[in-house]
């Protein structure tokens, strides 16, 4: 299983779940599973073109997955952090 960590800003879309366990062989497949479970996250994580939203950063095992985030291979035990970049001061 792969663990997806959901940022605080999006937890109102995940019933307050901090993490979600999925199976998938790429980051893209894992995020698809997340969005299937919580459809409200689609517009927050992905652009209309289906790419990662420009204010979202995806980290795989605490390292940036950019570029080509969605194609990064994943294996059992991996951790994906979905991070919303902040702008308030």
């Amino acid at each position: 299983m792969i663990t997806i960590h959901i940022p605080l800003i999006l937890r109102h879309l995940s019933d307050d779940a901090e993490t979600f366990q999925v199976e998938g062989s790429t980051v893209g497949q894992c995020l698809e599973e997340l969005v299937k479970a919580f459809p409200g996250m689609q517009a927050s994580i992905f652009s209309k073109k289906g790419e990662i939203h420009h204010l979202i950063e995806i980290f795989l095992n605490s390292k940036t997955a950019h570029p080509d985030e969605l194609r990064r291979p994943t294996v059992d035990g991996d951790e994906i952090h979905v991070v919303t970049l902040l702008s308030g001061g």
């Binding site: 605080l8 800003i9 204010l55 970049l85 902040l86 702008s87």
Partner: peptide
């Protein structure tokens, strides 16, 4: 930068490390 209960920090050293534009 902050939002609600969340915050982030990063230090940029020109010529040595990723900058804000690399991130955003």
């Amino acid at each position: 930068a902050v939002n609600g209960f969340e915050g982030q920090a990063m230090t940029v050293i020109p010529g040595q490390s990723a900058c804000l534009c690399c991130l955003y």
